[in-house]
Amino acid sequence: MSVNTTPMPPERLLQLDDVHVHFSMREGLVRAVNGVSYHVDRGEVLGIVGESGSGKSVTARAIMRLLSKNAIEAGGRIRFRPEPGKEVEISSLPRDGRQVRELRGGHIGMIFQEPMTALSPVHSIGTQIMRTVMLHRRVGKEAARARAIELLERVQLPKPTEMIERYPHQLSGGMRQRAMIALALSCDPALLIADEPTTALDVTTEAQILELLKSLQAEMGMAIVFITHNFGVVADIADRVAVMYLGRIAETGSVDDIFYQPKHPYTRALLQSIPRLGQAPVRRLKTIPGMVPDPFNAPAGCAFHPRCAYAVPGRCDTLVPEVSLFPGDQSARCHLAGELPEEAL
């Protein structure tokens, strides 16, 4: 486990190298994030896909330093470049120090899964946005209010001047998520972390929110880390994809490579388990056999081997696979990457 110490390329915005996060629980130690490395370039949308418990949200919270108190930040390096020529090593800063607080909300915005409960029930939408604007921009109340109205207009909420007086319980789920996006983008962050922002919404609203995020991204140019368990959403919004399984990145690559030339059996299995337009008619969609393993006893070797159709006994169940690189910035953590038989997706 060598930590990458090479300097970040100039276009790089965020880089995680071998990040580990453990939770110490009564039942034992959970290695929720077990050596995750990924990067996001300026203005790029990275989709992170994985089942529940794969560590995708925990990784995001490690970037924001928002992990709960029983979390152990067990190693790795998280570097962020808030503006060109300035580099911050987030992972080495004190958790609630001034520098981390400047990044939160100021340079990195975050949207959460539950729009119903993620906004304060006792403050108006306007108050919540204004507080963030006043905190980071050091402007007065009037300027912050004008900014809040402008933001609510940007996220296409009707009647922004009235909307800022509203409270979350008066809005629908989709409207709340729009307000949440306005809050996260209030200080023009270079990076937006969206943690399953559409999971709690119905399909129509989900599509609208995705459209909104795409247009805002085109307009404001921020990079997005988009966390989801839905491959369809990723195909819609992401430039690159990282697939996570049990605290590790199984595979990363461009959207096209991941969808058309997956190198990891897990990615393949996931893609085969979702219906596609134009697919040859099949009686049943394939499922991945077995369950996500109990986090207290992660399997030895490749964590996916008990469920993998290609697993080689003696190899996959003993050795943790290294990362294999492929052209076009694709990489997979599999002993058999590149050697898998061709198979219809």
Binding site: D96, R104, A118, L135, L183
Partner: peptide, 9 residues
């Protein structure tokens, strides 16, 4: 958590 994510102390 949202409040913390805004950078408030």
């Amino acid at each position: 958590e949202t409040a913390y994510a805004q950078g408030l102390s």
